[in-house]
Amino acid sequence: MKARVHITLRPSILDPQGNAIEGALTGLGFEGVSGVRQGKVIELELTETDEAAARSKVEDMCKKLLANPVMENYEIELVG
């Protein structure tokens, strides 16, 4: 089973990268852009076949390593 983890900064956390990208987009003439936030996508191949078990396993990985609970949220997507 394949899992995809989307990691984003928690809404209250400053995102310097997102801010700089937003500024550059405006500079390039793209108008009406706001709220740019940058995140990460991590893909994993799992041997686990049970969906619930896989989700709980990835959940555990997120808590322990993949996401930094100090400032990040995560979303898990199971694909096939």
Partner: peptide, 12 residues
């Protein structure tokens, strides 16, 4: 107490 952590932006 982690939510009190600030993020630095050296570019700014």
């Amino acid at each position: 107490k982690r939510p009190t952590v600030q993020v630095g932006d050296p570019f700014t």
